[in-house]
Amino acid sequence: MSQMVNIIVTVNGEKRHVSVTPGLSVLNMLRDNLDLTGAKLVCGEGECGACTVIVDGVSVNSCLMYAVELDGREVTTVEGLQSSEKLDPVQQAFVDKGAIQCGYCTPGMVMQTTHLLSKNGKPNDEEIRRGLEGNVCRCTGYTKIIEAVNQAAEG
């Protein structure tokens, strides 16, 4: 049994004490220890972006980051974006524009979009495409996702 490490991490605004093994990924910690199953395990090697969360204001592939690295840091997941019962504007834009089919990539897309818009409030088409290039969607062909990012940027 690996030795457990105790970390304190702020997840979606709430301080959490979590006991993790040194090899545990942020993704598995979120999903298995904290029941935050929004972020998805799709490839496990940082190629698809479905596990994207925001750590201290930067989007990361949570499958590639160790949970122990979170000690003292802040994580936002797709479950933490809403400040009220209403969907967050990025989430609402994905719904409105039909950018969600099977939805498995959506949490990662929403988080990456949130990150993109936090750095660049009015991205042009090229900046949106480049901003999302690490996130794979197999259903939509991206057209409606790009439209959703535009709506979120305008709103």
Partner: peptide
Amino acid sequence: ITKPDAPDKSNGRTRYIND
């Protein structure tokens, strides 16, 4: 018409079989 299941898919609430 937007997909009825889209809001839950947008905020991580949807419980996929994998979850």
